[in-house]
């Protein structure tokens, strides 16, 4: 199995997301498993207005790249190949936006030592 990141771009701010979308997110891992894949990790981000960027040592307010669709979160999945990964990514609940599927070069969870 190969690992992919599913980057979630959403125009609707997290606080405005309808509850059914939040519920749908909770149901995703089960649906992924039903397709023969696996969701390894999931991250949900606070709104991009809360972001702070550092470029060449200079600290500025806001996200690194200003776009209409902001990165709202990401999941890490395991899939057989790109077609399988795309089928899994299509399960992502989105109100107004889309997802980007990228193969992972590495995925490490740092353990406490």
């Amino acid at each position: 199995m190969a690992q992919y990141a599913v980057l979630i771009y959403e125009r609707v701010a997290p606080e405005d997301l309808p509850p059914e979308i939040m519920e749908a997110h909770g149901a995703v891992p089960g649906k992924v498993a039903a397709l023969g894949g696996k969701e390894l990790a999931g991250l949900a981000l606070e709104p991009s207005a809360t972001a702070t960027s550092i470029r060449g040592g200079v600290v500025t307010d806001g996200p690194f790249i200003e776009t209409k669709e902001v990165l709202a979160g990401l999941t890490v999945i395991e899939a057989r190949d790109l077609d399988h990964a795309l089928a899994i990514a299509k399960l992502t609940p989105i109100v107004d936006g889309g997802v980007e599927v990228r193969p992972l070069l590495g995925f490490v969870i740092v353990e406490d030592t």
Partner: peptide, 8 residues
């Protein structure tokens, strides 16, 4: 190769 576009 990197994205594993299937040969199928």
């Amino acid at each position: 190769a990197a994205a594993r576009i299937p040969y199928a």
